[in-house]
Nucleic acid binder design. Structure first.
Lengths: 224, 224
DNA sequence: ATAGTTTTGTTAAATTTTTCACAAATAGTT
DNA sequence: AACTATTTGTGAAAAATTTAACAAAACTAT
């Protein structure tokens, strides 16, 4: 890839990055339907967004479709991969092999070539040494060693909330470069570590809020 | 609550709604630290945002703090509850009692008064009838009946991806009002159903992208 | 051929979201 | 009582994101 191209990609809007990943996911599903091309409005429908949004995103990454035929699915998948995947691949570890950690491993297993979950960690002796879909669960005490030996760059935190802060610290100390925190306790990391946090309760409460709004709207209309 | 207040809340930015839920989460944790007040910059630090953002959000909901003393934690929690919680409470069902479904139940258990997971569904006979943290797992065949009897308004989809579409249809047919889809397959719902989708791979790929960018930046600097 | 339709690519406008900048207030200090 | 350091609340500006609008191209049907 040329240096200029890379520089362009660095400035892609955050939202576009997220959608590119989603486009690829949708495109991979479409691959099976022995269709060669796809229209912006088809992608948009799947993702619940507008066709313009899709076209703008693809414009930003410099990919062009064919007039009246749309985008070549295979090609577009490759172009997206070129942008969001790392050439050498990136290794990921799950810290916390409870329900959520195992869910992530199962869910992710073999889905992406360039992004692999290569290790799990836990403190529970019953779990240490076990395999989940080919992923070994290591003792959390050996985190630093394993992370460095296995060249792990991203850590996903799925421990009980009480252990969140300590886990984040361990990961940072081990030289991790990105953290995805699924516990409801926000963590602090040095600014050279990329951090993404997600709390399922927040999302659920958001859904509940809009359901509540809809209910109240209906109640008011009923009164009149 | 007055009608005008409600109308104001309806127009709150989506992002503000999400943050309110997060503020409450942070405030609930702070309650234990026998501190009565909290400053905007303290909340901001926890949430990795700016103090202005916090103040603006609180301004939008019409809550005022005290100059030089900040916001009353207890009060603020109540004000936020007034906005995002539903008076009568909202019942939630988990469809798919695999690792992810069980993780959600464990994780959520007893955390919110006004939002309760009251049922789980699965098709696996081994799981049907089981209890997870007090939540009964019902046969997915009885979904409509249970949802209507238990007055369930929100469904969380945590089934294997192959069952996603059918599950969403079942929920919609049962009269659900909000769906939170955790599978990587987007669903279609009528427009009177509020839909939120979340794919863990998308988030992980986003983290990977920014880690990759950081790596490349470092490589370039090293060359010079 | 020609007309009609559909789709892309993109500039410009609109909207949403965040940040700046600063007045007003207040607690603590001298 | 005066001074200093902080903090809130908010109008205005800036930045980010989405949408509108439409020219240009290409396929279809006549």
């Amino acid at each position: 890839m040329s240096k200029n191209a890379r520089d362009t990609f660095k400035q892609l809007p955050h939202k576009t990055i997220e959608r590119l990943s989603q486009y690829r996911r949708a495109l991979l599903i479409c691959l099976n339907n022995n269709k060669e091309h796809i229209f912006s409005h088809e992608i948009a429908k799947i993702q619940h967004i507008t066709p313009v949004q899709v076209r703008r995103d693809l414009m930003l990454i410099g990919y062009s479709g064919t007039l009246r035929r749309g985008y070549n699915i295979r090609e577009l998948i490759d172009v997206i991969a070129e942008i969001i995947d790392s050439d050498q691949g990136i290794n990921v570890a799950i810290v916390g092999m409870g329900n959520l950690g195992r869910a992530m491993i199962n869910y992710f297993s073999g889905k992406r070539h360039k992004l692999s979950i290569v290790a799990g960690f836990d403190t529970n002796p019953d779990k240490i040494g076990q395999l989940v879909k080919g992923v070994t669960c290591y003792d959390a005490l050996n985190m630093k060693e394993v992370i460095q030996n296995e060249n792990i760059e991203i850590g996903i935190i799925t421990v009980p909330v009480i252990q969140t802060t300590a886990t984040a610290k361990q990961l940072v100390d081990a030289g991790i470069k990105g953290i995805l925190n699924y516990t409801p306790k926000p963590v602090e990391v040095p600014e050279n570590v990329y951090l993404e946090e997600y709390d399922m309760i927040t999302t659920l409460e958001k859904v509940a809020f809009y359901v509540k709004m809809e209910n109240e709207l209906k109640d008011e209309l009923a009164k009149k």
